[in-house]
Design a protein around this nucleic acid. Structure first.
Lengths: 335, 335
DNA sequence: TTGAAAGCGCTAACAA
DNA sequence: TTGTTAGCGCTTTCAA
């Protein structure tokens, strides 16, 4: 029979000491049973773990953090949670982080570079490392804000920082060829935000393809990566005379399609549209959007792996993943 | 001149002690300058704050947490980050939390009640309180898992727990009347997940309206709240003969519309569809989806306020917000 | 393989 | 208004 530890019904949260006392071992042993299990005799370890469970013990993260200097938290900074590109990424990151026993502290910068600076300095003290997705901030400023915090930049190349990016060049060229084969000769490109690294890359890919293929390319924008901007741009598309249009991303593509519909046009009958990223929206539209699918799961997994590596002082290579073309219903032969 | 503290270029992170030493005051004074500014002479406080800035001091959250028992973190548990209902909510919560100086630890249960139990126990030790959005778990089990952690349940009524919900009854009745006025007499209801509290409420609202109005109502489902389930259900809609259909949510509504399109129908020409929540998708579809708009911003704000209140031992009332009807392009007169 | 003891950086009585 | 003094719960030498 275990002696009554307390008459009160309110039992304080168990600590390594309560376990140590109950088992008549030292607190160090209990601590080791959790953090360095290999250092404690299997038999003892079992008993510790058992009573820990009984007492509902959970290690106090703050105490551990104070002792080790680690918080067990990864900060995740995104420019806009409501942009459908990010939720699948967030989910993948959250899962991967859980696998290395880290929590995810989520912060939204609302698309503002200035806010990024402020947020980074606000949270860098409470996390072990930072995952920065699609930063708006110039690389130099970003580096300055990050200081010495181990960080991984997602979706942007940045000299001197660990990065995980998705390269859509090949898929975009494939898409262009697909349209060309269908008979299109007049192309338009709706450029994304000028501060977006991905926007520049995508524009470059399409521009150089057009040049090689010797077809005309009207460059429109820059636009914000939102639905309404795409919608408003429809008139310019019509004016450009292009029959095949590359939107910066799916949101914008959906906007253009809506805008064209406002003008009495139907896609793909009157014009073909291609998006980028393959967000939920692209699959739920009718017809489905032809787009370049980003490996978001893998992007998230790799970012966490990279950050984890950084924290273990391992050298981490920059990783580059490939987007793939997904043909759905918004591309067809020109009218 | 300040004496050299270190020859090494690597300066350790400043603590209250480094500041105290530099200013020749006690560490308590420095501590107070931050946590209880009113208790320290303005003049001294200024000097503390100034050198803190100079030294790049940021309080160590873990240490503070250990001393106070507070982590400064709110846990946010959602069933599916990629469901477009949640991102705007997450953003609102994150912002509101920042305003009370709390961070948001995000966790995704992937729609599994079992996972909810596990996740709650995994994170309840590292947060000050929990925000649980649209739990799948039965209320009793949920309460058991939550134990004594201060918690606010979002989007579900739960006896004995603080809750913040959105009531769509009035808006749904208004929508039904709108359709009835348009001439519809045969209605269908696509029920959502059986474990979803909101699904039950919505079904009830429409069912009782139909009864009162004396119109026929075909009840279909339960379906999962995803696009593909809606799409697959299109055939049943056609079979039911209903000309006006209430989908459980926007995702499902979008699915139905795609499914009907597969069957050669057009909305709203052949049938009228109404969604619920007004997620991004509803605005970007062509035509736009008639739906019930949820005040997500406010929902998020109120949840954080409630949790904050709970943590300050204030009594917090349950809050109930109202959805509002937003008529767009998917409703019209019956054929 | 285990225990004793110091310390991580901060807060909060209590005293002055 | 400020300083002194204990911890908060855990990890981690160092010794045994």
């Amino acid at each position: 029979m275990v002696g009554a530890r307390s008459i009160l019904p309110i039992m304080k949260q168990a600590t390594i000491y309560s376990i140590a006392q109950a088992l008549e071992v030292s607190a160090s042993t209990v601590s080791r049973a959790f953090s360095r299990p290999d250092l404690v005799k299997p038999e003892v370890r079992e008993r510790v773990l058992a009573t820990a469970r009984e007492l509902g013990y959970a290690p106090n993260r703050a105490a551990r953090g104070l002792a080790t200097g680690r918080t067990g938290l990864y900060g995740l900074l995104v420019p806009d949670v409501t942009n459908p590109f990010f939720p699948p990424l967030i989910r993948a990151i959250q899962q991967a982080a859980a696998r290395v026993d880290a929590g995810v502290l989520l912060v939204d910068s609302e698309g503002s570079g200035a806010a990024e600076t402020a947020l980074v300095s606000r949270i860098k003290a409470q996390v072990d490392g930072l995952l920065v997705a699609s930063p708006r901030l110039a690389t130099a400023k970003l580096k300055e804000a990050l200081g010495a915090v181990p960080s991984v930049i997602i979706n942007r190349a940045a000299q001197g920082l660990a990065t995980v990016v998705c390269d859509n060049t090949a898929a975009l060229r494939e898409a262009a060829t697909h349209l060309h084969d269908l008979g299109h000769r007049r192309f338009a490109l709706m450029r994304g935000p000028s501060a977006s690294w991905a926007a520049g890359r995508r524009a470059h890919a399409i521009r150089s393809w057009a040049q090689e293929a010797g077809v005309s390319l009207a460059e429109l924008g820059h636009y914000e990566a939102v639905f309404v901007d795409g919608r408003r741009a429809a008139a310019q598309i019509v004016e450009s005379g292009a029959t095949a249009v590359f939107a910066f991303d799916d949101l914008m593509a959906a906007g253009v399609i809506a805008g064209l519909s406002d003008l009495g046009e139907t896609v793909p009958r009157d014009r073909s549209i291609i998006g980028c990223d393959d967000v939920l929206l692209a699959r739920t539209m009718t017809p489905g959007l032809t787009t370049v699918t980003a490996p978001l799961e893998e992007l998230g997994r790799q970012s966490v792996l990279a950050l984890h590596g950084l924290l273990e002082q391992r050298p981490v290579p920059n990783v580059q993943l490939q987007g793939t073309l997904t043909v759905r219903g918004t591309t067809g032969p020109p009218p």
